[in-house]
Design a protein around this nucleic acid. Structure first.
Lengths: 336, 336
DNA sequence: CGCCTAAGGTTGTACGTATAACTTCGGTTT
DNA sequence: AAACCGAAGTTATACGTACAACCTTAGGCG
């Protein structure tokens, strides 16, 4: 590979086309109308093509003081959910000439405190999801335009927020199970300090408190299939009347609950109803298929990016939570 | 948010510390030994801290002609496998002061031809996995240092390659199933033009051809759980003696096969053995747990990054495929 | 006929950084 | 005492781009 050969610059193109560097910049920047003749413009474009010219982004970014690049901070990268968020955000970004850089946060990658050390690219803004408080502080220190995903609107220090209407999702789950006749529940909660999970807990407790005769045991587990198994198993075998339904904070926890149920010889949905949140591919692959709250990850990412663009242009981002939808499948049935 | 206020530059720091801009650059760049007194250096560091100074990366990149940023091109982002690859690559990168930018390729994101339009950051190199030929060509056009993951060593145009020893994985699967007594197979192949899948097909065919009395039906499906169901169902219900084992190109296809088997009333592993490749979380969540080839994604990413660093430093990258390991679980048993 | 204007450019500069080349000065060596 | 030297800086410059401000020429017009 020709490592020594430097890439052509706009000056090289200018020389090849017999014009000044400024003319090249005008033509390729599409600002040439009325300033450069059509013939000359074509000569420039041709020279650029021949030389394989590509503008030096570092120079352009320096000159313009902006990079048209935003950072998407996601909590690890282990599920397709954030892949969807990225896809949606990147699509909207591309429509506006922006790029999206991904930063899967902590756990073993470099200095966890500092997303910006890892993202060497200079940034115009940040979309951050479910972050630890210290990482959030680091970002605020940058005073970069910021949009928070699934974050407490009241506690976001004035940053714009874009949220899924997860409270409504929880209500749908509760309604569904209550109407089937369930009264004794386990809430298998994600052991992650994040607003979106607080909402789940609060909303569920609030709704069930309205119905006399209900009880809820809360169990906690890290978000992973393996992590959920032990918690679910313990909660299911605790003394007292066994709960008839397990409400999980997400689909991975639900998958863990399936495993725990199998170990205990409980059949789903006959002995136990299970619900999740996310609607990952996993949800329809399991047997029986999982009743879960469908989240539109791509739409979520799109809204996040649109909100950031609004902030960047000093417009007010649209408000309103993104609707979610309970998908009733085969993992829920009336208790026996 | 104070959008108008511009960030402090090294000149601002210099002024605050009462030194020249060059001194600031020396101190913060850790090149000051013997050039600046300890006392002055400390004044500079303090001023930088007080002002919240952060170097402008666009300017630095322009000056140095390199970005310490590499691009990791992955085929969509739907599984945890590439999350692992990223994690490994990013860890090694961070150890060497590099950042990794992720580019989940085609399908709905901007101009699919041009990974570089999306990755606005200027790049020092590229790690590319399983790419379509045209994207590869675009990269070669850049003449950027390149490492290919899971790509034909013979056909990579001289680019360095880092590969999993997938051929060995396939041999382990074949050996396992043959020794259980299986003779009639379905090969559920990923419908993706990629070297790693060609290897699976070739190696499997080669091994089975050595054993008299074996037969293989090949079915193809896009890599997704849903996509695999129809293919698997069709292959299982085709006329002729039903195969007793389905060898899947990856775990998602295996999950689809589980669904198809359920629909057809076939029990795993009693009526049908199933194997996968990848060892995703999915594999141990399914019932029964999936016999599959474990791929160490993080190690793969680490090797990829190390190879790229070698190329960047004009060293020869180490060679040798990364070993893989068959995990025998409960989805395989002797045929009845 | 001289002046104005528009077309079609060019010249010059700034963005913020890293570093090569120079300066200054107190102390040492010969 | 002259020459030298290292420490502790400073000055100047280049990276490649975008764009404001300037220049030149030819034609139109009063």
């Amino acid at each position: 590979m020709a490592r020594g050969s430097t890439r052509p610059t706009s000056r090289d193109v200018a020389q090849a086309a017999g014009v000044s560097q400024a003319a090249v910049s005008l033509v390729l920047g599409d600002k040439w109308r009325g300033r450069v003749s059509e013939a000359t413009a074509e000569r420039v474009r041709e020279a650029a093509r021949d030389l394989g010219y590509r503008p030096n982004l570092a120079a352009r970014n320096l000159r313009l003081g902006r990079t048209r690049t935003v950072l998407l901070v996601v909590p690890a990268l282990t599920t397709e959910f954030f892949a969807g968020v990225y896809t949606g955000a990147a699509r909207v970004a591309a429509e506006h000439g922006f790029g999206v850089v991904l930063y899967p946060s902590p756990e073993g990658i470099g200095p966890a405190r500092d997303p910006f050390a890892s993202a060497q690219a200079a940034l115009d803004g940040v979309i951050a999801s479910s972050m630890a408080a210290d990482a959030l502080t680091a970002i605020r220190g940058e005073a970069l335009p910021l949009v928070m995903l699934d974050s407490d609107p009241a506690g976001s220090l004035g940053a714009a927020t874009v949220n899924l209407d997860i409270a409504d999702g929880v209500r749908q789950v509760a309604e569904h199970l209550l109407s089937l006749g369930h009264r004794r529940f386990i809430h298998l909660a994600a052991d992650v300090p994040s607003w979106t999970f607080e909402v789940r807990a609060r909303e569920l407790a609030a709704r069930l408190a309205e119905v006399p005769g209900t009880s809820v045991r809360t169990a906690r587990a890290p978000i992973s299939i393996e992590g959920a198994v032990a918690s679910a198993e313990a909660a299911l075998s605790a003394p007292g009347a066994r709960p008839t339904a397990v409400i999980c904070d997400d689909d991975q926890l639900a998958a863990g609950t399936y495993k725990a149920a199998r170990r205990l010889g409980l059949r789903i949905p006959d002995d136990l109803s299970v619900t999740g949140v996310d609607d990952l591919a996993l949800a329809t692959a399991m047997d029986p298929e999982l009743t879960t709250v469908h989240l539109d990850a791509e739409l979520f990412g799109e809204h996040g990016m649109r909100a950031l663009l609004a902030v960047l242009e000093d417009r007010a981002p649209e408000s309103g939570d993104i609707p979610v939808q309970l998908m009733v499948r085969s993992s829920t049935a009336p208790p026996r």
